[in-house]
Amino acid sequence: MKTVKVRKIGNSYGITLPKEVVERYHLLEGETVQIIEGQDGFTVTPYDPEFLAWARAYERTNTKYRDTLKALAE
């Protein structure tokens, strides 16, 4: 568990992520992270539920039409 301070940034507030966290999750400046609220607080994560839905749809399509896509790629 890492401890960070909430800081005032203009009219908003923000937190600074430790370097080891940024490196572990391969985050880059300007990337978007999600804040998921729960009963015990919140989680900051690079996980994007919309991207996951897209990736699953792609996987289904890729599996179903594998031979067709392979032939088109040639």
Rank of each mutant, 00 (worst) to 15 (best):
M1A: 13
M1N: 12
M1D: 13
T3D: 11
T3S: 09
V4I: 12
K5G: 05
K5W: 09
K5R: 15
V6N: 07
R7L: 15
R7A: 12
K8E: 14
K8F: 06
K8C: 08
G10Y: 10
G10N: 15
N11V: 13
N11Y: 13
N11Q: 15
N11E: 15
S12R: 12
S12T: 12
S12K: 14
S12F: 14
Y13K: 15
G14V: 04
I15S: 10
T16L: 13
L17Q: 02
P18W: 05
P18N: 10
K19G: 00
E20P: 00
E20T: 06
E20V: 00
E20Y: 05
V21Y: 10
V21D: 04
V22T: 02
V22P: 01
E23Q: 12
R24N: 09
R24G: 03
R24L: 13
Y25A: 06
H26Q: 13
L27G: 00
L27T: 01
L28H: 12
L28N: 10
L28R: 13
G30P: 00
G30Q: 04
G30Y: 01
E31N: 09
E31Q: 14
E31I: 06
T32D: 06
V33D: 02
Q34N: 14
Q34M: 13
Q34F: 13
Q34T: 15
Q34C: 09
I35C: 01
I35D: 00
I35F: 04
I36W: 06
I36C: 12
E37F: 08
E37A: 08
G38I: 08
G38A: 13
G38C: 05
G38H: 10
Q39L: 13
Q39R: 15
D40N: 14
D40I: 03
D40W: 07
G41A: 11
F42V: 06
F42T: 03
T43V: 14
T43C: 04
T43P: 01
V44Q: 01
T45L: 07
T45K: 06
P46C: 03
P46L: 03
P46Y: 01
Y47C: 03
Y47V: 08
Y47R: 10
Y47E: 11
Y47T: 11
D48R: 05
D48L: 04
D48G: 02
P49Q: 10
E50I: 04
E50F: 02
E50Q: 08
E50M: 06
F51R: 06
F51C: 00
F51L: 14
F51W: 08
L52C: 00
L52K: 11
A53C: 04
A53L: 08
W54L: 14
W54S: 06
A55E: 12
A55F: 08
A55G: 00
R56W: 01
A57C: 07
Y58K: 14
E59P: 00
E59I: 02
R60Y: 07
R60T: 08
T61K: 03
T61M: 12
T61R: 09
T61Q: 05
T61W: 12
N62W: 00
N62V: 02
N62F: 05
N62G: 04
N62K: 09
T63G: 00
T63C: 03
T63D: 01
T63W: 01
T63M: 04
K64R: 15
R66Y: 02
D67S: 07
T68Y: 14
L69G: 09
L69C: 05
K70H: 09
K70W: 05
A71M: 06
A71H: 06
L72E: 12
L72G: 10
A73I: 03
A73P: 00
A73M: 08
E74Q: 09
